[in-house]
Design a protein around this nucleic acid. Structure first.
Lengths: 340, 340
DNA sequence: AAGCTGATTGTTAGCGCTAACGTGAGGAGG
DNA sequence: CCTCCTCACGTTAGCGCTAACAATCAGCTT
């Protein structure tokens, strides 16, 4: 009697039958095992092509206990930095033959983080990349004992965690030192949200560089990454009239400050110098073009994957990989009083 | 003899043993089947909690032939629109209890697209969302017969495909009509890359609205979404000195044009009015604040998931869902010659 | 009291794949 | 000429789960 011709995706057995071999031989061909004769291999490959066979990932992971996917846990993906890091990780993962499963945290709380990680454990991902640059994350992560290799991106260095990060303190130093070198002595800073690790590190870098130069570090204004907060900070600074330079913790806040200065009748860079952070593509097209700090996000993602693969092969390393940022000087910075 | 205490994740059988029931009863509890006595349910739940049991997704998908994940195929995720659409889809998927697997196309070619889709088929995703707003994608998609429900985001409407999109023509019309209403008669357009569907639709909207008003549509400049291309377009326009208004196909190009106008000594909006597109958060903080068109990306993502779920339940619908954009008037637009 | 009903639970048989082991043919070595 | 080994394959036994079916037991009906 004829087997009913239900339309269902071909399985290994179908390929085996067509090639006149056992399903195990098909498996061997698929997994590039050595002991298969070239002739058999060829026949199997032809059968695979003919049927359009694709190996069932679920069955495969069930038995191998590996899924060939890495989970990326992120938050605040609407921000430039995290979004681009994700892009970099994705690219790198794909190059290494891994699938990428993404989970976005709505809010950064220990509970949400735990849920996110559980979500990945359920999918039995082979590794996890965490792009959640918040202090809270750092703490949560240390308390959760993970059976799965995990690499955190953008964290401060800590031996309990494998980390890939940009040296934020150095980036901030680069920016502030540039202003100091130009002769500025009253350098303000609009910071990012204090619970962001990167933001805190930039504040720290700003403060240290100032201290080294023997300068005052009292002009710190709290921002939240948004252009709006930069605008408010700029207004405040213009009203106080003390600062001759502003280091903004990202380009968007710099953009906001730019508008505030413009409204207050302050010219950039003649009356006040301005440095951003991130080097978003738009930074070069502001009026005036923005001096800023470039972070290599693509490279960060690649390094991250590299570390993850290492940890996956050799167990947890607790290593860290630090990328150095680069100052990009454009025309929003000049010597103080240049225009007077 | 004692069973060896190898550290391995607990399985259903372990839970069953602890709760004194069969593994099938555990399965029933997990799947919220009706006929389980409250007492048993409670004991099973306690056992699950105690062991920290998590159901193995691979085994589950193997037998149910569903993976509870939807695949998102994207390209150009570094752009504001696609990135935010992804965010919206992710959010929506998560709300509906689905995992999200992301694949990014390096280049938009039929081969790459086919690879991307195969990649998802291998993972046996339950549905696919495509965020690739290129003409090429549109064509490729129609030729590939898909066994898996698929929704395309941001495409033109086509009955072969289920589509969720923003009405780009309407958005462009809104922008251009606003300029016309202000009294402008020489309205230029910097377009996005011609192979982007959205870009083409905006050009079309610009052209139609102009035609309706009996105005000239010869001032079309080709851009590529980047601020840099907007800058070049602005320079070109300033040199020609004919246009009194510019409609840029996105905010970044508008930003570039802004700088070009500033360099050329043209004031916005007194000498030339400027409208952007996307309403990125920064748009409100440019100098001057940018009039632009807001697209609801979150909502787009939600609609998209809604359609996908519908198609997953009822088979391919070929339906389409269109979101209407909104004009946001700020101070980069004014009546022509307002300053003279 | 025998039979029927429905609710609750257990038992069995795979899903498609890989790892471990089994087998037979052919060549090397004694 | 027989053993032993190697290569190339086939056979078998699960991986952890769900769906289908079987079994049990209480509460009714007739």
């Amino acid at each position: 009697m004829p087997i009913s011709e239900i339309r269902r995706p071909p399985v290994m057995e179908d390929v085996a039958k067509l090639a006149g071999v056992s399903h195990q031989t098909v498996s061997r061909v698929l997994n590039a095992h050595p002991n298969v004769s070239p002739l058999t291999r060829e026949r199997v490959e032809k059968a695979i092509a003919e049927l359009g066979y694709r190996r069932n990932t679920a069955a495969r992971s069930l038995v191998t206990r590996q899924s060939q996917t890495i989970g990326v846990l992120g938050s605040d993906m609407s921000h430039y930095g995290p979004a681009n890091t994700l892009l970099g990780v994705q690219q790198a993962a794909r190059d290494k033959g891994y699938f990428v499963s993404v989970a976005s945290l709505g809010e950064v709380t220990p509970t949400a983080i735990k849920d996110g990680l559980e979500y990945f454990m359920m999918q039995s991902v082979d590794g996890i990349v965490v792009i959640v640059p918040h202090e809270a994350m750092f703490e949560s992560l240390s308390t959760i004992s993970m059976a799965i290799p995990l690499v955190a991106v953008g964290f401060g260095v800590d031996e309990r965690l494998s980390v890939a990060a940009v040296n934020q303190r150095m980036g901030a130093s680069l920016a502030v030192q540039h202003l100091v070198d130009l002769g500025h002595t009253a350098i303000a800073h609009v910071a990012g949200p204090p619970d962001w690790i990167d933001a805190a590190a930039r504040v720290d870098g700003w403060r240290r560089t100032l201290a080294q130069a023997g300068l005052d570090d009292s002009m710190l204004i709290q921002g939240d990454w948004s252009a709006e907060s930069g605008y408010r900070a700029g207004l405040e600074l213009a009203a106080a009239g003390r600062a001759t330079a502003l280091f903004a913790a990202n380009d968007q806040m710099a953009l906001g400050a730019l508008r505030a200065f413009s409204e207050a009748g302050l010219r950039v860079p003649q009356d006040v110098s301005l440095v951003g952070y991130d080097d978003q593509p738009e930074a070069a097209y502001l009026v005036p073009p923005l001096t800023t700090v470039n972070q290599g996000f693509q490279e960060l993602g690649a390094r991250c994957m590299q570390m993850l693969l290492f940890d996956m092969a050799n167990g947890h390393s607790g290593a860290s990989s630090v990328v150095n940022p680069r100052l990009v000087v454009r025309s929003s910075t000049a010597a103080p009083n240049a225009g007077r």
